[in-house]
């Protein structure tokens, strides 16, 4: 998949892929991902019980989960664990061991402009956080907020008084959402404005790499179909009209992976660069995934339109990826702003 990976990275990829193709998606997979393999804590320092790896390794795991579309709150929990570990605020030591063990599920609010952040004075927070991914599962919610006039990153326990959670029915059934209404909810500050920004960037990079993995699965599955399905007395894959479309999809898949892996590398290794590469990767990979998933349906013909075939699940995941996490227009405007380009909105 990636010639720049070393042996350990390839082993990690194989281990996760084997697990996800062997196990039925469900609580057992979550237990094995967390408890047995310790992957929610893959980036967490050893002092907090983690594996001490970098965000590059986290990206490898996320790409595999995207590939399998495994409906577990891994992305959110692993991103939150990374944010807490890198922030090193006092709450980190408290919650990280539980996050690493899978006993606690955490996640970030879906990115939004500061005007939509919750506000508060002291520890009490008010506001609405909508479309929070994996919201129904979250025990701990991280969000940027404006507290006493200053932008900060805070953590809110979802079982605290003043927190009302509403589970939302979703088009993408592999990615549950909830709305959180906060009315004077108790919040703990875990970072400043810069930490809040970095946390959001890591979430965007993580979503990008998950999309890149999913897009590759869509192409692989489509190619397998075109090699075997025969019409007009020959495999569909022999038709040049279809070959050329697949070549364009391959370019999208390769370039999305390269862009996402760079963003995951930058998350730990080049924080200044990550401010651009993360939103850029999210915008590019979500768009690429949506294109490839749509072509997966078309190139499968009628079977691709059935509920039974997995194509629609990837198409819906691609849609939610593109529309959530701030959406396409917002994330592109962030790239333009940070790259010093003319404003697009």
């Amino acid at each position: 998949m990636d010639a720049l990976f070393g042996d350990e990275q390839r082993d990690l990829q194989r281990t996760v892929r084997d697990l996800l193709t062997r196990e039925d998606p469900g609580p057992a997979v979550w237990q094995r991902l967390c408890g047995e393999l310790g992957l929610t804590g893959i980036t967490v320092g050893e002092r907090h019980g983690g594996a001490g790896a970098t965000t590059v390794e986290l990206g490898i795991v996320l790409a595999e989960l995207g590939r399998a579309l495994t409906p577990v709150p891994f992305l959110q929990t692993a991103v939150a664990a990374t944010v807490l570990d890198r922030s090193d605020a006092p709450p980190a030591a408290e919650v990280l061991p539980a996050l690493v063990a899978g006993g606690l599920v955490a996640g970030l609010a879906t990115p939004a402009p500061p005007t939509r952040w919750p506000t508060g004075s002291g520890p009490a927070l008010t506001g609405v956080l909508d479309n929070v991914v994996d919201g129904p599962h979250l025990d701990l919610l991280l969000t940027p907020a404006v507290v006493d006039g200053a932008a900060v990153l805070v953590a809110v326990r979802t079982d605290a008084p003043g927190v009302t959670r509403t589970t939302l029915p979703t088009l993408d059934r592999s990615r549950p959402q909830a709305r959180f209404a906060l009315r004077g909810a108790p919040a703990v500050e875990i970072g400043d404005a810069a930490s809040a920004s970095r946390a959001t960037d890591l979430l965007l990079a993580a979503v990008a790499v998950e999309s890149a993995g999913a897009a590759r699965f869509c192409l692989d599955t489509t190619l397998a179909h075109l090699r075997t399905r025969e019409q007009f007395g020959r495999p569909l894959g022999t038709f040049q009209a279809l070959q050329h479309r697949c070549a364009d999809l391959a370019v999208l898949v390769e370039s999305a992976w390269a862009t996402a892996r760079h963003a995951m590398w930058a998350a730990d290794a080049d924080p200044a660069g990550a401010a651009v590469s993360a939103p850029l990767a999210k915008a590019y990979c979500a768009d690429a995934f949506r294109t490839v998933a749509g072509e997966m349906i078309q190139l499968h013909g009628g079977i691709g339109f059935t509920w039974e075939h997995p194509a629609h699940r990837y198409f819906k995941r691609a849609t939610s990826t593109d529309l959530l996490f701030g959406g396409r227009a917002w994330v592109r405007s962030v790239v333009a702003e940070r790259a010093g380009l003319p404003a697009v909105r």
């Binding site: 990636d2 720049l4 370039s255 892996r261 790239v335 333009a336 380009l341 003319p342």
Partner: peptide, 30 residues
């Protein structure tokens, strides 16, 4: 540049240039 359609095309062009670079780093560095 004040035209939102042109601004969007400039952004696309710039983004794609970064993508070209990341792709070259990954594949040609192998």
């Amino acid at each position: 540049a004040d035209d939102p359609v042109i601004a969007d095309r400039l952004l696309d062009s710039w983004m794609q240039l970064q993508v070209l670079r990341h792709t070259a780093v990954m594949t040609l560095g192998a």
